[in-house]
Design a protein around this nucleic acid. Structure first.
Lengths: 189, 189
DNA sequence: GTCTATAGATAGATAGAC
DNA sequence: GTCTATCTATCTATAGAC
């Protein structure tokens, strides 16, 4: 592992716990037994660390969505794919998702632009999947934006909950989240 | 409106947009055409402003939950009540919900303790409602914590989405959110 | 590549004049 | 109750010795 990677990994933990703005370069250096000034031999600014973390995961989501779009399968299967890659990432990189959710607005310049572009594209792709599901009568509920919002809000905050329940297996988690998002909770009447 | 209330209302807007840690007392003072020092004639610290905002809304949630618990109605009706007061608050005080979600960890001392206590009590009360619904066969899905998490994550982040869609009437919003959380989205098979 | 020292900006908060 | 002035602490980042 490179020094830069070590810095970024440490930052992931601290940023998640206390928020980007509350973590100083001195805090970060102390954890890896450095002086703050030395960090600058490996990274160019604090914001660069944030951008590395956030844009990396944003690019992963974009990549996964492009694969799903290329599959030519029905809406339900596509939604299952979206849920699957969110759960994967929640398990493997929960810090990055938390930081993306809470601190993306502290990105600057082109980093901020790139992030917003990827986020909006992702949301539009997911909206298209839902629209297609309604057209093909796979989805009964009619308000597209409420479906989109409900799915995304659950998937984006899954990391908060998984922390307390990391005993659950990856497959059980995928199954339960998929069921609840697609089928609801009530006994069918 | 008192001066203190004016300060808090201004803080609500700024804290929501940029996060508690990114807003300085000078930023806050500038908006209401004050000098930063003058703010301290009305509030004792920056953290007190945060606590006023966050604990106020936490107390509201606690109060509403206590009313629901006292009603002696079935689980479905109780869940509808929970959704209703979340939607009400999202429409009437979205800034406070956003700040509670993002910046509660910057509360200090007793403020932090009180917040955590109210949050945990609320979650436990909601878990009891869900458990009761499963016992009485109103709820089919079996994983209590996933139901709890899914409902709360959607309700807690509703403010993000309502911003873009504030054209929707309060009643339509309550109906759609209730439907999607309780009934799911797929065509019944 | 890590250090000490420090520049330069900005933070929360207080003292005291008016 | 609002101001100017300022204290003390802390921030990101750089300069230059080793």
């Amino acid at each position: 592992m490179t020094r830069k990677q070590e810095i970024i990994d440490t930052a992931k933990t601290l940023f998640r716990e206390r928020g980007y703005k509350s973590v100083s370069m001195r805090d970060l250096a102390k954890v890896i037994d450095f002086k703050a000034a030395s960090l600058y031999n490996h990274i160019s600014s604090k914001e660069e660390i944030l951008a590395d973390i956030v844009l990396d995961v944003a690019r992963y989501f974009t990549h996964e969505m492009n694969i799903i779009k290329s599959l030519n399968v029905d809406a339900k299967t596509q939604l299952e794919g979206v849920i699957k890659h969110h759960v994967d990432l929640t398990i493997n990189n929960p810090e990055a998702i938390a930081i993306l959710n809470n601190d993306w607005m502290h990105l600057e310049g082109k980093h901020l632009e790139d992030f917003k572009m990827m986020r909006d594209t992702y949301e539009n792709d997911l909206r298209s999947i839902i629209t297609q599901g309604i057209e093909h009568k796979e989805i009964a509920f009619q308000n597209i934006d409420i479906i989109l919002f409900s799915i995304l809000s659950t998937l984006r905050t899954l990391h908060l909950w998984y922390r307390k329940r990391s005993d659950l297996s990856e497959n059980d988690l995928k199954k339960d989240i998929t069921d609840i998002l697609l089928k609801g909770i009530l006994v069918k009447s």
